[in-house]
């Protein structure tokens, strides 16, 4: 009984230690898409994630502040254009997050 409680404690700690910035579903989605490509613009992420322009912008700001995403602004013709890319820190954080979540979920009983 004691051993079981210790195990559950470890699981709880494992879940509690996941990266809260990535844990938010919309940001997780953004990180997942950016992790499988080199870079993309706002429109691409909007069509893939289904987020509104303002919502996406707000989440990108948080990811940028955390140093997970780098935002590059340039011009295509005369129009402003923003490309987004995961930083090395972002890739590592996303990978760690996935490992922790998988580990935590795998140790939970099904019923």
């Amino acid at each position: 009984m004691v051993a079981k409680n210790i195990g559950e404690d470890k699981e709880a700690k494992s879940v509690a230690s996941v990266d809260r910035i990535i844990h938010e579903p919309a940001r997780f989605n953004i990180m997942a898409y950016l992790s499988v490509i080199q870079s993309a613009d706002f429109t691409f992420l909007q069509t893939q994630t289904g987020l509104t322009w303002g919502n996406l912008s707000s989440h990108i700001n948080k990811l940028e502040t955390a140093g997970y995403v780098v935002v590059e602004k340039d011009f295509v013709g005369k129009k402003p254009h923003t490309m987004l890319q995961l930083t090395d820190k972002g890739r590592t954080a996303f990978s760690d997050y996935r490992k922790k979540m998988r580990k935590a979920l795998n140790t939970l009983p099904l019923k």
Binding site: V36, I37, Q38, S39, A40, D41, F42, T43, F44, L45, Q46, T47, V76, H81, M83
Partner: peptide, 13 residues
């Protein structure tokens, strides 16, 4: 492109 946006795929792709 204006509808789907621009994307650069990984070097592997």
């Amino acid at each position: 492109v204006p509808r789907l946006g621009r994307v650069k795929f990984s070097s592997e792709r």
